[in-house]
Design a protein around this nucleic acid. Structure first.
Lengths: 224, 224
DNA sequence: CCTATTCTTTCAAATTTCTTACAAATCTAT
DNA sequence: ATAGATTTGTAAGAAATTTGAAAGAATAGG
């Protein structure tokens, strides 16, 4: 999961980054509204943590700007105490949650998880795909209680495909969300194909996986 | 992708054209509001870059004209600094993004990409055509839960026809939008006919498709 | 420093896309 | 109505693209 932290106070921003990284998120920072707008326009984030007290612009513009369909990020507003009407306006504009300063990092994590569950339909509980059970919390995949040992990227890949089930994901989308980078022009490597192949190989030792489909010319899709 | 650049300052317009062509876009220019309106009425553009400082009319009128659902172009407003309320009015009227003069061409490209990503990913929901269900996000076509296996171009073709349903699309329009190239003069190949035939053949294995019509002398149309 | 993971490179296999040639259908002008 | 012209449909196969697979190099993490 990709997170953009929009917060002008560097020390707080850094603190959040360190924490979220330890939680397994990919983080980027923006310290001004202009920077944030540009980054959001270019990258596909899953979350945007937005401090409304930016010096150069009204943070609410940023939400208003980018109303994407399906792949829009989840906005979580960070407010100082007392900016209540901003909070309300933010929620009206389509922010998904807010959190008031000062906050505990664990609370932030909890809210992000809750928002993610609603917004991206990330199942809180385990999920059945084919004959497999995916445990998102413990990052385990099992087949009749036998664990399928996937590496980190392999699990991330499967995880992201399952969350976006019944959607074709391009290699670029997978790359941007799981690796958290923009894919440069003309970059041709088939490492995503390789990971897919490895996931399939490991899963196929237990059962066939026709639900992990190749959509030729586009990307991959999990259907169920 | 087709772009109409509506900008009265010729040197800037030309500069944009040269750049966008190098990025693989097909460009046309309009230097007056009247010209722009006419061109938009006739052609199917993917993007319209609209300078609000036109001499002969309020650029915002151009956006306001009613457009067919699905086939409307993405409007990106070009404003001079300080025309903030125009920007706001533009976004209210349905513009998809704005960019303030002076801007870097790379930023324009980034915004067009971002807008394109969300705009042309097509309806979030599935759609019924005849006895078939088209799932756009999944790029699947089904008939009573049986999947009709279409290749990429076949799906793109059906997709574009369905989005522009009740409109006749010429082979040139289909080619320019789906293949993203200008069709050279006197280029005669019937590969679009061939793809249409293949789509029909695959669909007809499940049910007849009188709704995928040939408009003799013009092109093809999906009516429903 | 060692090991597991991730990425790159290479090539074969599978599939799609486009071209070509011709048949069938439709239109136009006598 | 019919011949000729134009347009569309069909088939087969060549060319191009895309994916799968294997092996090994680079990298990261303990």
């Amino acid at each position: 999961m990709n997170v953009l932290i929009v917060e002008d106070e560097k020390s707080l921003s850094d603190e959040i980054v360190v924490f979220l990284k330890s939680e397994g998120y990919l983080c980027e920072q923006a310290f001004t509204g202009a920077d944030a707008s540009e980054k959001i326009a270019i990258n596909l984030y899953d979350f945007v943590l937005l401090d409304l007290g930016l010096p150069d612009c009204d943070g609410l513009d940023i939400i208003n700007n980018d109303r994407a369909w399906g792949s829009e990020p989840a906005f979580i507003i960070i407010t100082a105490r007392g900016e209540v009407q901003d909070k309300v306006k933010g929620l009206d504009l389509g922010a998904d949650d807010y959190i008031a300063k000062p906050f505990a990092l664990t609370e932030l994590a909890a809210r992000m998880q809750a928002v993610g569950r609603r917004k991206f339909k990330i199942p809180g509980q385990d999920m059945n795909v084919g004959e497999f059970v995916i445990e998102f919390q413990s990052r385990k995949v099992t087949h009749n209680d036998n664990e399928v040992l996937l590496t980190r990227k392999e699990f991330d890949l499967l995880n992201y495909l399952v969350i976006n089930r019944n959607k074709v994901l391009t290699r670029q989308q997978l790359y941007e969300h799981i690796w958290g980078n923009i894919l440069e022009d003309q970059y041709d490597s088939n490492f995503i194909d390789v990971h897919i192949k490895n996931v399939r190989r490991k899963l196929n030792e237990f059962a066939s996986t026709p639900w992990l489909e190749t959509v030729r010319g586009i990307g991959y899709r999990v259907s169920f």
